[in-house]
């Protein structure tokens, strides 16, 4: 086990030497890279990284440039998790055999994927990695849409969002199903640690990433990643949207230890109405027509119920 990097405050954090480079090709204002920087800067350990196909991957390793200063691999859309699990297995094998080139290093194995590659096409692969309890971390950059291919719905797309394959129209309010609860599903693999994080709460993020990197076993992290292009907001407002997502409790921040013990890690002082979160995004614009306003009420009811559920679970200490 390596020493955990000391990060008391943001000034101290800002002394980190980034291992993710600029001149990547992500959209201006993309939250993916903000999250990646917070994750990578949370540790001074060597990293073995993987990415499933998606925005992050196609924008950070396009020949002849890579934006990664650590070992990194991409194979396909569905298997970033398994790629890093294979590397982790090799690390174990070479350690047993005494063949590591730098045996004193303590690499952390981390895979990134979007909600497309995580909630949908790569779901089984992640489940396999979690079930096998590899010493690795899987992080979803959850922007609730297939942004890389131009805005198709995913199983993370929430009710009422207009996506290109579930568009709002004269007789449709867009996506009809609510997103699935990936954190709960992954926690059900009885992994040592799973959590939801947001880039605006950098300290909560760093704490969870550090904890996750230092537990032995598989860790699942779901990170909300506001998408300027598909959520349809001005690029400058990325962090405002992140704030709205956590403070409206649409994305509550919590962790689940050993698959059961739930801790809420952020309680907004002023809870923002969900309506404000929805109003800030073009993808929900049509919900503000008279005939769909009931959906906004339903949104609020659902978010309230989920928050109450999380609090009950936390109190129950089970």
């Amino acid at each position: 086990m390596s020493e955990i990097k000391k990060i008391k405050n943001l000034k101290e954090f800002s002394t980190s030497a980034d291992r993710f480079e600029g001149a990547h090709l992500l959209c201006p204002g993309c939250a993916h890279s903000i999250i990646v920087r917070e994750v990578l800067n949370a540790t001074n350990d060597d990293l073995v990284l993987a990415a499933s196909t998606g925005c992050l991957e196609v924008c950070t390793a396009v020949y002849p440039y890579t934006s990664w200063d650590a070992s990194w691999i991409h194979i396909g859309f569905e298997n970033g998790s398994t790629a890093v699990s294979g590397a982790e297995a090799m690390y174990k094998a070479l350690k047993t055999k005494g063949r590591l080139k730098q045996p004193d290093r303590n690499p952390k194995f981390v895979a990134f994927g979007g909600d497309g590659s995580s909630y949908d096409i790569g779901f089984q692969w992640i489940s396999g990695c979690m079930e096998r309890n590899h010493n690795m971390m899987y992080i979803v950059l959850d922007n609730e849409v297939y942004a890389n291919t131009g805005g198709q719905r995913s199983s993370s797309t929430p009710i009422g969002a207009s996506a290109t394959t579930t568009p709002a129209g004269s007789v449709s309010y867009g996506e009809k199903r609510n997103k699935k609860d990936m954190v709960a599903i992954m926690a059900s693999h009885n992994i040592p640690y799973s959590a939801q994080v947001a880039p605006n709460k950098w300290k909560d993020m760093v704490k969870k990433i550090q904890h996750g990197m230092n537990v032995e076993g598989a860790v699942f992290i779901n990170a909300v990643s506001p998408c300027t292009t598909e959520w349809k907001f001005d690029p400058k407002d990325t962090m405002h949207l992140a704030d709205l997502s956590t403070d409206s409790l649409v994305f509550p921040l919590y962790e689940i230890i050993d698959g059961h013990e739930l801790n809420i890690t952020y309680r907004p002082k002023n809870i923002v109405p969900v309506e404000e979160y929805l109003a800030a995004q073009g993808r929900f614009k049509h919900l503000f027509k008279d005939e769909y306003k009931y959906l906004i009420k339903e949104w609020q009811t659902r978010v309230d119920a989920n928050w109450a559920y999380l609090q009950r679970r936390e109190e129950a200490r089970v």
């Binding site: 993987a50 691999i73 569905e78 398994t82 294979g86 590397a87 297995a89 070479l94 047993t96 396999g128």
Partner: peptide, 28 residues
């Protein structure tokens, strides 16, 4: 033998794991 046996959940994952392991630097 001293190698690692990773029993994955599909053949696609089997080769994915092999690729990750091979890129990490060993016999697969």
């Amino acid at each position: 033998v001293e190698g690692e046996v990773v029993m994955v959940e599909s053949e696609h994952a089997a080769m994915s794991g092999c690729i990750g392991a091979a890129a990490a630097g060993g016999r697969v």
